[in-house]
Nucleic acid binder design. Structure first.
Length: 359
DNA sequence: AACGTTGTCAACCGCTGGTTA
DNA sequence: GTAACCAGCGGTTGACAACGT
């Protein structure tokens, strides 16, 4: 059902900027008769405009409840948050900002907020760290520089939160890398495995990698209430080693990992989403199947989860401040891309399956 | 002062989906 | 069931302003 939107043009309706006279005619008519049918309004109001143009002019400019002027920090924060949840659903976002039109929000996003996020190393479309390595470099330096001192404004908090999410997503990326090493196509990639066993990245053994992959997925997700929790294995030494390396040592009992060995059992195995990956030949010491799917640490797929995210911001921010070791590890990973011709991290990253974007 | 570049934002365009005849 | 009507949405454009050289 495609409609001709140029129907009115045959009648030679005026286009372009509205004059004050046209504005007053439209306002006067709507004040007197209400909105009614936009198609009939031009004729009834004595305007040589199409109904569409009248509706747009009214909703975006002449409406009495329009709020004009600079966006406040609270509004900016809200737009960023809502965009991370809703995507480019400008009209939906506008319903949460009284007095602001979808057009105005869209323009403000494209001219201000989008660029701001890019400067933060955050992909403004996905609200995740950009996989573009140049942008990641900027993000990395931003994170390691701290850049979080002073008394942050609301907007700073919003952006800081995005950066924290970026940090967590890097962790997810590392987790995904581990999964590539241990389970891609059922055959362990020994070259990559050897790389992870280098002192640079912590001398991980294949069995460690399997453990770590699960620990990161279940542990961080559970501790941050961002993902349905997966019971942890009791192998705290490995986890501790890993957490030390990435600077995410749990700091409070609330965020520590359970040591109850009973937590790791059949119920854990039953959560494995893709049990087809054959890992038995990778690990002789680990009898627990590793999840071959990527567990997103952060999901923007529902408003509820984002509320959780906001509530967890204190934890996230605290962890970010201790992220230097991880950043060093990350930088080393990225350097290897240029120094080792056998493979490219960029290629792996490109192949990585990220969780779905916001609906 | 003149010119080119970049940023901003109002308005337009093409399209979709709901409603009605 | 079908076609036309209509409101609304998101992407894009272009005029104008601001800024830099």
């Amino acid at each position: 059902m495609v409609k001709s939107s140029n129907r009115d043009e045959a009648g030679g309706v005026k286009k372009g900027p509205w004059t004050p006279e046209e504005d007053s005619k439209l306002v006067e008519y709507v004040d007197k008769h209400g909105r009614g049918s936009w198609q009939r309004i031009p004729k009834l109001a004595g305007l040589n405009r199409c109904g569409k143009s009248c509706r747009l002019r009214w909703t975006n400019y002449l409406r009495p409840d329009i709020r004009r002027g600079k966006f406040t920090e609270e509004e900016e924060q809200l737009v960023i948050h809502l965009h991370s949840v809703l995507g480019n659903k400008w009209s939906s976002i506008a319903t949460k900002l009284p007095g602001r039109t979808d057009n105005e929000i869209k323009n403000y996003w494209n001219t201000h907020l989008r660029k701001k996020l890019i400067r933060m190393g955050i992909d403004p479309v996905t609200h995740r760290p950009a996989t573009n390595l140049n942008l990641l470099t900027g993000l990395s330096s931003l994170l390691s520089a701290g850049g979080l001192g002073g008394t942050p404004s609301h907007l700073d908090n919003a952006l800081k939160l995005q950066a924290d999410v970026a940090h967590l997503l890097k962790l997810q990326l590392v987790q995904s890398l581990i999964q590539v090493l241990t389970s891609s196509y059922g055959t362990p990639n020994m070259d990559l495995m050897n790389l992870f066993r280098s002192p640079l990245l912590g001398n991980y053994q294949p069995s460690d990698l399997l453990q770590l992959s699960r620990q990161i997925a279940g542990g961080l997700g559970g501790s941050l209430s961002l993902q349905s929790s997966i019971p942890m294995t009791p192998n705290l030494s490995i986890l501790s080693h890993y957490l030390n390396n990435i600077g995410l040592q749990p700091t409070t009992p609330e965020h520590s990992f359970p040591s109850d060995a009973a937590a790791v059992t059949a119920s854990d195995a039953s959560r494995t989403e893709e049990p087809s990956a054959d890992i038995s030949n990778v690990s002789s010491t680990n009898s627990i199947p590793a999840s071959s799917s990527t567990h997103p640490l952060v999901s923007a797929s529902s408003e509820t989860k984002n509320i959780d995210l906001v509530q967890s911001s204190d934890i996230l921010c605290a962890n970010t401040l201790a992220s230097e070791p991880f950043e060093a590890c990350w930088d080393n990973l990225m350097k290897l891309d240029t120094h080792d011709s056998h493979f490219g991290w960029k290629d792996i990253i490109d192949e990585m399956s990220w969780p779905d974007a916001a609906p």
